[in-house]
């Protein structure tokens, strides 16, 4: 298992997401982003960059818990 696998959402988080996704009041939160390939690449790049500090933060948080 890679270090990244340790960061996958736990079952409770996934359950919360599933319940929210199947509630029509929140349907808009799960619509696809279709603002074009440039915006998509910006989002993916930003997420990639944000992953580094988030990974460290979650690893530390998991160890402390």
């Amino acid at each position: 298992m890679s270090v990244l696998d340790m960061l996958k959402p736990d079952d409770a988080e996934i359950r919360r997401a599933a319940l929210r996704e199947t509630d029509p009041r929140y349907a808009a939160e799960f619509e696809p982003f279709t603002k074009g390939p440039f915006v998509a690449l910006v989002i993916l790049t930003a997420v990639g960059l944000a992953t580094v500090p988030l990974t460290l933060w979650r690893l530390i948080a998991k160890k402390q818990s």
Partner: peptide, 27 residues
């Protein structure tokens, strides 16, 4: 198929996983 299943497979916090899933969904 629902996005939470994709989020589950991503090594990301849920909020970022959802962002990526929404961005990739049509592709």
């Amino acid at each position: 198929l629902l996005l939470f299943k994709l989020m589950k497979e991503m090594p990301l916090p849920p909020a970022l996983g959802l962002l990526v899933a929404r961005t990739l969904q049509t592709s």
